[in-house]
């Protein structure tokens, strides 16, 4: 196989690693047990490089690169944590917490939330920015699921899983800037009788926060299973 001859070697956090040329820095780091925080990335979905938590440094380059989309290059020297990166990551999380209403104690995802987990992992103890407390709607029109925009971090995982895996493309984003909002169909209620939703629940499973949840389930009863995707893709490829 010609690809085999093209194996690249690089250094991540001082560790020599090897990679296929089509791999991202994130792939290779994780293969080698190096943890890089991510939010918008999910194995099995296309990458958008939007949350910017996975930014890493490359020696000789002033610009930070998102590890989830940046491809490996021969001889690259990658640093996944530095004072500078840590500062940006914490600030990004703070910005998220201040942006909408992430009140963990009263959230269905409490204990099962990737945002909450990252905040703990990165040692976020307080938020320096004023909370914006927007008054956002909750769409409970669907018979099985609820969409609470107050908890949405606009990672677009729901949009991508629905379009790329389920093939229904129910979700999209409307608006600009702080007014962005995920919508179902053309901004119709999720439970609308003409909705294109297949009720598969994939979006609920991949949502990193309590924005999308199954009705009647709270906290520990609501473990999300975003890891089904790689298996699903593998099975589809095998067919």
């Amino acid at each position: 196989m010609s690809a085999a001859t093209e194996i690249k070697t690089l250094i991540i956090d001082g560790k020599d690693v090897s990679a296929r040329p089509d791999q991202t820095i994130l792939d290779v780091a994780r293969e080698n047990g190096i943890n890089i925080p991510t939010l918008c990335h999910l194995d099995g979905l296309s990458d958008v490089g939007a949350c910017r938590l996975c930014l890493i440094e490359i020696k000789g380059q002033n610009r930070l690169l998102p590890a989830c989309v940046a491809r490996v290059e021969e001889g690259m020297e990658v640093t996944t944590t530095s004072e500078r990166i840590a500062r940006h990551r914490r600030t990004i999380l703070e910005l998220l917490f201040a942006e909408r209403n992430h009140i963990c104690a009263v959230c269905v995802a409490n204990g099962n939330c990737e945002l909450q987990a990252l905040a703990q992992q990165l040692g976020l103890t307080h938020v320096r920015f004023p909370y914006r407390n927007p008054a956002l709607a909750v769409d409970a029109s669907h018979e099985r699921f609820t969409c609470d925009h107050n908890r949405c971090i606009l990672c677009t995982r729901c949009v991508r899983v629905c379009a790329e895996i389920e093939g229904a493309h129910v979700w999209d984003v409307e608006g600009r800037g702080a007014d962005c909002k995920v919508i179902t169909d053309l901004a119709q209620p999720w439970g609308d009788k003409n909705s294109s939703c297949t009720k598969c629940g994939k979006c609920v499973q991949v949502c990193p926060t309590g924005a999308l949840y199954e009705k009647g389930k709270v906290g520990v009863e609501h473990p999300k299973r975003p890891d089904f995707l790689p298996y699903l893709n593998l099975m589809r490829e095998a067919q």
Binding site: L95, P130, L154, G177, D179
Partner: peptide, 21 residues
Amino acid sequence: CMTESCGKCIPCRAGTVQMHT
């Protein structure tokens, strides 16, 4: 910048709002 931000990435979407405040 705040009103013209596309809203895709967090630093720009939420950061410009806070800087404006």
